[in-house]
Amino acid sequence: MSTQLTQDEVLKVASLSRLKLSETEVTALGEQMGSVLKYIAMLDELDTTDIEPMAHAIEISNVFRDDQLQESLPREQALSNAPQTDGKYFLVPAIL
């Protein structure tokens, strides 16, 4: 595992993360992520071949809800926090 991320690596992750970064940020993140990843590399010491991954803090399964209607929000409330609407739809800059 590398100790510092290249500018290209940082930019690739930033693009996946949809984050526009300044040049200073790109440099700083390359270093900071590098040092955290270097520290994290200590996990390589451990042999985890036969260990089951643990995605939940507690073991639970089969939690369901019944197929019963709940009241939806009035449209004004659904749209109330949106940056841009026409009163009926969320609006975004042209996708196509």
Binding site: R65, L69, Q70, E71, S72, P74, R75, A78, F90
Partner: peptide, 20 residues
């Protein structure tokens, strides 16, 4: 618990905190 009814004429009326 929002309805799955096909309802394009009334946009954004079948939503809640979860599906929003």
């Amino acid at each position: 618990g929002c309805s799955t009814r096909f309802n394009p004429d009334h946009p954004n009326t079948q939503t809640c905190p979860v599906c929003l």
